Simulated assay, not measured.
Amino acid sequence: MTYRYVDVSREGRLTIVTLNRPDAHNALNSEAHLELEAVFDAFAADGDQWAAIITGAGAKAFCAGHDLKQQAAGGGLDLPPTGFAGLTSRFDLTKPVIAAVNGVAMGGGFEIALACDLVVASAGAVFALPEPRVGLAALGGGIQRLSRSIGFHRAMDMMLTGRRVTAAEGLALGFINEVAETDVMAAARRRAAAILACSPMSVRATKQAALRGLDTSLEDGIGGQWKYPAMQAMLTSQDAVEGPVAFAEKRAPQWQGR
């Protein structure tokens, strides 16, 4: 499928999603949100794709957030059910997504990164939830996710002021996994390769259990994880047989993803 505001490519088991509005700092309008919803729908349904990277086109911006010019012209704040960029309210996605933040990540752009499982940022990347400065609020999950990621008081310092945070500070705060001094996509691909070396069934089971564990007690999380769909799929999979056999035979496992 051809998209107007998004580029999609595949490298083996890895999907690369590139926000492609560099002239607008990759800010997302209504059509871009719908395109991204379709992109992640297709990624979720494709059994041959096991991980994804999302990044921005150009050298300046990952995503400047919601297209405020569209809103000022009467375009509104309408989002698909799956949220900003078709991702921030997609709570059933068990496949891992890595954010390769190549520049400015403001508002909804920062919320995209927070909705990902890993965040790799270029040294010059900048993050903020500046919505209060324009009479809005971070309604794409930023309020909830940033607090969970770095703690209430540190998150409030960012959210109530809308202040900008460098990649180095983001790493120290804990919402960034790695700051890439050179090529952020190379760093993201290395992370993806390490994930793809593992069983995709195990990766999905782990992600689902980790996310559900955020909303439950430790006791209930440990006891209930055996019934999670991705965990049951892992335990009954061919990969669960292949892994121990490959270990015993001292060879690399041949994951099937089923």
Rank of each mutant, 00 (worst) to 15 (best):
M231Y: 11
G75C: 04
T15R: 11
H33I: 01
D23Q: 14
L34H: 12
T18D: 08
A99Q: 05
S199H: 01
A24Y: 12
V134M: 15
P22D: 07
A248M: 10
M106Y: 10
L235W: 09
A230V: 03
G12K: 10
T55W: 08
M106R: 13
Y228M: 08
E249N: 13
E242D: 11
A73I: 07
K207W: 08
V6N: 05
K60P: 12
K207C: 07
G257Y: 04
A168G: 10
S147D: 07
L19A: 07
S202Q: 12
L173P: 00
A42V: 15
G135C: 08
E242W: 04
A137D: 09
T236A: 15
A42G: 10
F62I: 06
L77M: 14
R154Y: 03
Q256I: 13
L173R: 05
G257I: 04
K250F: 06
W255I: 02
C63E: 06
R10A: 09
C198E: 11
T94H: 09
N29F: 07
V134F: 14
R212A: 10
E242R: 04
Q208H: 08
N102D: 05
T166N: 07
F175G: 00
T94W: 09
E111D: 05
V203D: 05
A113P: 01
T55S: 08
A210I: 14
L14P: 06
E131S: 06
A73R: 13
S217M: 13
A61Y: 03
A115H: 02
I150F: 00
I16H: 09
M106H: 12
E169H: 06
I16S: 09
V245W: 10
D215V: 07
P244K: 04
T216Q: 12
R191D: 09
C198S: 13
M158N: 04
V101L: 02
A210D: 14
G162Y: 02
W50H: 07
E181L: 10
F91R: 11
G12V: 04
L118H: 11
A113N: 02
S30T: 10
A188N: 06
S237M: 03
V119A: 00
G74V: 06
V97M: 03
R258A: 11
F175C: 00
A38L: 10
Y5C: 15
T82E: 08
L34N: 09
M231S: 10
G107T: 04
T216Y: 15
V165A: 01
A115I: 01
L19Q: 02
G74Y: 03
E242M: 11
Q144C: 04
Y228Q: 14
P200I: 01
S237E: 04
Q225H: 11
L28C: 06
V134C: 14
F84A: 02
L173K: 00
M158R: 00
G142R: 01
T182L: 13
A100P: 07
G162I: 01
G135I: 04
A121P: 05
A113M: 01
A193Q: 09
H25K: 12
H25T: 12
G86N: 02
G47Q: 13
A197R: 05
Y228L: 12
I143Q: 04
